[in-house]
């Protein structure tokens, strides 16, 4: 099972990647929206974890570029929870929103798995 993690914060990206890999997922990482979109199209991962605020394309922009044809489960993460229009992060094509900071990275992974129907 493939997981795409798109976040410009390297520590977040790496910790998510490590947590998924510990659970035997194949993890693809991208450090911005543009690269993330390319990898999404190229690898067609089952799960896409997207940061909202990123240089270049933002998370929601990536989702709308990819379009409805994707069968991936999309999880949005953001530290700016209070300042975004809820529709942009819980809107069409988005399956789950998780605000940063995380209290427990493994609980985050478990919730994503629930949405993806893995568990």
């Amino acid at each position: 099972m493939k997981v795409l993690v798109v976040d410009d914060e390297q520590l977040v990206r790496r910790s998510l990647a490590r947590a998924f890999r510990l659970k035997k997922y194949e993890v693809i990482e991208a450090e911005d929206g543009k690269k993330g979109l390319e990898l999404w199209i190229e690898h067609k991962p089952e799960i896409v974890v997207l940061d909202v605020l990123m240089p270049g394309l933002s998370g929601p922009q990536v989702v709308s570029e990819r379009g409805p044809q994707s069968e991936s489960k999309v999880i949005m993460i953001s530290a700016y929870s209070g300042e975004h229009d809820v529709t942009t992060i819980t809107g069409e094509g988005i399956d789950l929103f998780i605000p940063k900071p995380f209290d427990d990275i493994f609980k985050v992974v478990e919730r994503i798995e629930e949405v993806a129907g893995v568990r």
Binding site: V12, R14, A19, P101
Partner: peptide
């Protein structure tokens, strides 16, 4: 600060 802190804490948990 929230972003890197989230990373630090999460990575610590993973490690």
């Amino acid at each position: 600060l929230n972003n890197p802190l989230t990373g630090i804490r999460s990575l610590s948990q993973v490690l």
